[in-house]
Simulated scan of single mutants.
Amino acid sequence: MRPTVPRPTATHPAVTRAAVLRDFNAPLELTEVPLPRELPPGSAIVRITSTTLCGTDAHLWRGVLPFVRTPIILGHEMAGEVVALGALSGRDAFGKPVEIGSRVVWSESVCGHCQGCTVLREPVLCDHRGYGFGQRADRWPFAIGGLSEYAYLPPGADRIVLDPEMPDTWAAAAGCAVKTVVRAFANAGGVEPGSTVAVQGSGPLGLVATAMARAAGAGRVITLGGPPNRLALAAKYGADATIDVTDVTDPDERVAQVEELTGARGADLVLDFAGAPTANREGVLMCGKRGTHVVVGLAGPQAAPVPMDVVMGREITVVGSLNGDVGDLARALRFLSAFAGRFEWDALFSPPVGLAGAEQAIRDMASMAAVKAVVDPGLD
């Protein structure tokens, strides 16, 4: 007997309300954007229930990433409710049923046939990875970004059905920020119990990394960043010491302070979540002998040279780490749940606003007035 192929399930709107970026550094336009009429196998339509913003959204809005083309719908950390399914879309990454009404979070789509997907078996290195900000809002399939009432989930975007107790904001943040931190620690080889960890950056990634280092058994955690309210949250998340980069503006002085805090031995693990021009130079200099420096942030074209003689002389390992895949997403959700009683995750998030407030939410991220702004399109 031939197996029955599932048919597309339920109907979905023909258009969606969205906050569209048409020009960089300009107001977002609240407008309607088409949704795909036919759903290919493996795809879905989701009603967005929460989009959490990150610094990348602010960078994209400013136009500092030259490969991005407008018009686009910003937002790449989302959670939502399934409203329509294409054929062969009925299971999540764990094999759980995906049904109309399921609450899901999902990874970026991957092609499944390039070298990264097949030979290396690393979906995060897919040549055709489908980031939302790589999708123009005036071309099919139109709406992949999170600043939209509905979004299209392409085939190859592995989804995970959420546990009932998982808040939408936590799940959305796991979709990029938290899974990026999870992967960075994994690529570093983890945290040796009792070791010293230095975290560069006190944005959402740096704050989550501070908590993760503490939860993993680090003996001492040092967080560098700013402004002071973020460093206060870093202390609540387990930082033994903080360095305010807006106060200590000399990179060499920051290195000297880490050296003093570590008894001149340096840190065993330094993670760059700042992406500042001097971050990688500082990170290497903060490492002790046989230390590891993990590069996650984008230092930009004006990056200070990394002292390779120090890398050689101290036998430092420099590791690159790029975002995360669906496995990292699953581990991110598990981490948030497992330590919900220990760390106040809700302290990361601003009160949600609707699409009409999305532009101000992005501006708040750009000015660091918000740690993690939240947009709920259903509030309009």
Rank of each mutant, 00 (worst) to 15 (best):
F349T: 03
A347Q: 12
A218C: 08
V178Y: 05
P204A: 00
P228S: 02
A304E: 14
G146Y: 01
R183C: 00
G86E: 03
G238K: 05
F67L: 09
W345R: 00
A366R: 04
G291C: 08
V371M: 08
R363A: 09
L261W: 01
M368F: 15
M312F: 15
G266D: 05
R290F: 15
G80N: 05
D168G: 07
I316D: 07
E81Q: 12
A137M: 02
F67P: 05
S350F: 06
H293I: 10
D163I: 13
L88V: 06
K96T: 14
V255H: 05
A186F: 09
P40D: 15
P34I: 15
E99Q: 11
V124M: 07
Q115F: 14
G266R: 02
D57Q: 09
F343L: 13
P277Y: 05
G341H: 01
L355K: 06
H12E: 06
I144Q: 01
G357W: 01
A356C: 14
V306E: 12
Y150I: 10
L74E: 03
D163M: 13
I160G: 00
G194L: 11
P123E: 05
G101Y: 12
M1R: 14
V5I: 06
V208K: 04
D240T: 06
V270S: 06
V326K: 08
G201T: 01
D364Y: 00
A264W: 12
E282H: 12
I362T: 07
V68E: 01
V270F: 01
P352I: 11
A303F: 14
V98M: 10
Q302D: 15
H128T: 07
I316S: 07
E108M: 09
V248Y: 10
N229E: 08
C126A: 14
Q135P: 11
G194F: 09
W345C: 10
V178D: 08
Q135K: 04
L336D: 06
H12S: 00
V296I: 15
A361V: 05
T278N: 11
R62W: 03
D346K: 01
V221K: 06
P301G: 13
P97M: 15
M1P: 11
A87F: 15
R265E: 15
T56H: 03
H113D: 09
N187L: 08
P66T: 15
F94M: 11
V371C: 09
R363D: 02
M78C: 05
L379A: 09
G288T: 15
G226W: 00
S89G: 01
V255G: 02
T249N: 04
A332G: 02
S195G: 10
G225C: 04
G55T: 06
Q257M: 03
P34T: 12
E359Y: 01
M308W: 12
V310P: 03
S321A: 13
H12N: 04
F133S: 04
A58Q: 01
C114L: 10
R22Q: 13
L85P: 00
L269R: 04
L233V: 02
G116M: 11
D158F: 13
V33T: 09
N229G: 08
S50D: 05
G175Q: 03
S107T: 08
V178C: 10
G266Q: 03
L65D: 00
P164T: 13
A234F: 03
A241G: 02
D380A: 10
